[in-house]
């Protein structure tokens, strides 16, 4: 049984349509990334699952029942993008309060220590930095024993150490069997942490697959970084039949086609002849970034 299901949901805020037939499934005990450009509907999907919005049409189910019911509010913990911390409260105070509301007072101290919230424990929320507020907000979502956790942009505003701490915590949650839904626009984050990926655009889900299959569905390719606007004219003839090469992004070159060791050999000797250093040379399947860009570009092309 999936941990959460959104089926053909339409949702609008006044005249602004947020979701147009969104369908997605969150599998139990896995980390699912919710990806998509700004305004794709990620936070609306979060609001549906948290029971904060009712769909205009369609069906939503969380942990085997209606979102927002008591059992769901007990077992599903949510970290909202806008955080929603009372500005006059202090960090440890609000974390302890959330623990009390969930009947899990003892878990508060651990979360406070883990996220380093005591360091600014005397300061009211309104005077904290964005990163500090994020830590408090995350601690609030962790206290107690959730069966599922929704994290909406948990690392935005965090410094690199904070970010790796959050990654570590998400991995631990999965290891404990907790279902995690991670809404993010950071593809490296999704690639590092997630088992499943759902890509949203303009209120619909373009693809939902295990990360592996989404990434490997892309063609084999070789990528490398080099100075801008290299003259590549001789290279395609040197490469095996069926290979194409282009500058996919400024200074980033991609060779697509039947990639085999001869391609690498040819490429590197061409570079040697032309005095080009191919930095970050990488051969393999496409990245999540490639799959994401392809899907979003296709979707926007449909318009």
């Amino acid at each position: 049984m999936p941990a959460a299901v959104i089926a053909d949901v339409h949702l609008a805020y006044g005249r602004a349509v947020a979701l147009r037939g969104l369908s997605l499934t969150v599998s139990q005990g896995r980390v699912t990334a919710l990806l998509g450009p700004n305004g794709a509907g990620k936070s609306s999907a979060v609001a549906l699952l948290a029971g904060l919005r009712r769909p205009r049409s369609g069906h939503v189910e969380v942990l085997g029942g209606k979102p927002g019911r008591y059992a769901a509010r007990q077992a599903l913990h949510v970290m909202l993008q806008e955080e929603g911390l009372p500005t006059g409260a202090r960090g440890p105070e609000i974390v302890r309060h959330m623990a009390r509301l969930r009947g899990a007072v003892p878990s508060a101290d651990e979360a406070i220590a883990r996220l380093g919230i005591d360091a600014f424990g005397r300061t009211s929320i309104r005077r904290l930095s964005g990163g500090e507020r994020r830590r408090v907000s995350l601690a609030c979502a962790l206290v107690g024993s959730p069966r599922m956790v929704i994290l909406d942009e948990p690392t935005s505003g965090l410094d690199p150490r904070g970010r790796s701490l959050v990654w570590e915590i998400i991995r631990e949650l999965r290891d404990q069997g907790t279902t995690v839904l991670l809404a993010t626009h950071l593809l490296d984050e999704a690639e590092a942490l997630c088992d499943d990926v759902a890509i949203l655009s303009r209120g619909r889900c373009l693809a939902q697959e295990p990360l592996e299959s989404l990434v490997s569905s892309g063609q084999e390719q070789v990528t490398f970084d080099a100075p801008l606007r290299l003259d590549l004219s001789g290279l395609p003839h040197a490469l095996p039949e069926g290979c194409v090469v282009n500058e996919a992004a400024p200074g980033r070159y991609v060779v697509r086609g039947p990639v085999d060791p001869r391609v690498l050999a040819t490429l590197t000797s061409w570079c040697a002849e032309h005095g080009v250093m191919p930095r970050n040379l990488r051969a393999g399947h496409g990245s999540l970034e490639a799959a994401y860009s392809r899907l979003i570009a296709q979707d926007e092309g449909v318009e």
């Binding site: 029971g51 008591y70 509010r73 007990q74 909202l80 929603g84 911390l85 509301l101 009947g103």
Partner: peptide, 18 residues
């Protein structure tokens, strides 16, 4: 008004408190 603007009421609405 302040708690609506900061989202504090929304966060509470996700907890066991009705």
């Amino acid at each position: 008004g302040f708690d609506r603007r900061s989202g504090a009421l929304l966060l509470l609405a996700t907890t066991p408190l009705s």
